[in-house]
């Protein structure tokens, strides 16, 4: 029995069904980097095919080739400066919104965690906040707060708030009953229980929420730009402008930059989470053990 099992295991192990086959022996970095590069090459291939084979020259602006995008969008100093300053503004909007959303979200979650009645009073509205299309509120926000920086930040806050409330609350409530018993036995006050037990226990969930919220906040900033055209242009403003002028190289470059911002923000908050709680929790896929 055990012999045949071992055999079966060996056979399974030696089949290059996954992973170790093709790139075995290559350095780790190369092994990790090659598969995404292959994907990228395939995508570029399809892209160029569409541009040069499928599209007629007069319709080529629908899908300009990558090198044209780089040339017009990134290498032209005027375009580049315009886009980078817009990107900077959007980043500021997104981060200010995220900070405000974090402060509000964590506070609301802490308050909810202190009494069932408060949770029941507030949670339905937090869910409502999540379900109403924020876009539908945007004109109203513009009415009330003008069409500049403040309004853009408010859109970010509204869009990023729910994951922060929900994840923090989940974390605060995920504490073991035995840990609560320990604190009860030693006469811990409500405040000590919150600060020494619930809040640290909630940190991994809080960072999960923060990472999601950061991505949403970037979306909020870009969407807000498209509606609030006053003041300095954000990257979303430029997207709309390039679209209306059919400047497709710049449009593609701006799309690329906003995606990059989303990726950078998502990774940065993932990294921050790993730095803060990675040594003891499984945040971000780490084992929390072998460090």
């Amino acid at each position: 029995m055990s012999l045949s099992l071992t055999k079966a295991f060996r056979t399974a192990g030696s089949t290059p069904a996954k992973g170790p086959g093709v790139l075995a022996g290559a350095p780790r970095l190369v092994r990790l980097a090659i598969p995404p590069f292959v994907t990228l090459a395939v995508i570029l291939g399809i892209w160029l095919t569409i541009t040069y084979v499928i599209l007629a020259p007069e319709r080529r602006f629908l899908m300009p080739p990558p090198h044209e995008i780089a040339k017009v969008g990134f290498l032209d100093p005027a375009n580049r400066a315009q886009m980078l300053s817009a990107l900077l503004l959007s980043t500021q909007v997104a981060m200010v919104g995220l900070v405000i959303a974090t402060v509000i979200g964590v506070s609301v979650a802490v308050v909810m965690s202190q009494a069932r009645a408060i949770e029941r009073a507030l949670y339905p509205y937090a869910v409502v906040l999540q379900t109403i299309p924020i876009l539908a509120l945007v004109p109203l926000i513009g009415f009330w707060f003008e069409f500049g920086f403040t309004s853009r930040v408010i859109v970010c806050v509204l869009i990023a708030l729910f994951p922060l409330i929900a994840n923090t609350l989940f974390g605060l409530q995920s504490v073991d009953a035995a840990h609560h018993d320990l604190f009860t036995l030693h006469g811990a006050s409500r405040w000590e229980r919150l600060v020494k037990l619930q809040f640290p226990a909630a940190l991994p969930a809080l960072f999960t929420g923060l990472r999601i919220a950061a991505g949403l906040s970037v979306i909020g900033a870009v969407v807000g730009d498209m509606f609030f055209m006053q003041g300095q242009p954000g990257i979303g403003t430029l997207l709309d402008l390039y679209r209306s002028r059919l400047q497709s190289e710049q449009l593609f470059a701006a799309i690329f930059l906003s995606s990059l911002l989303g990726i950078v923000v998502f990774s940065a908050f993932g990294l921050l989470g790993r730095l803060v709680v990675g040594s003891w929790s499984t945040f971000g896929g780490g084992s929390g053990r072998e460090r």
Partner: peptide, 8 residues
């Protein structure tokens, strides 16, 4: 029964 330690 369990060590009930705070992991952080």
């Amino acid at each position: 029964q369990d060590p009930t330690l705070l992991p952080w």
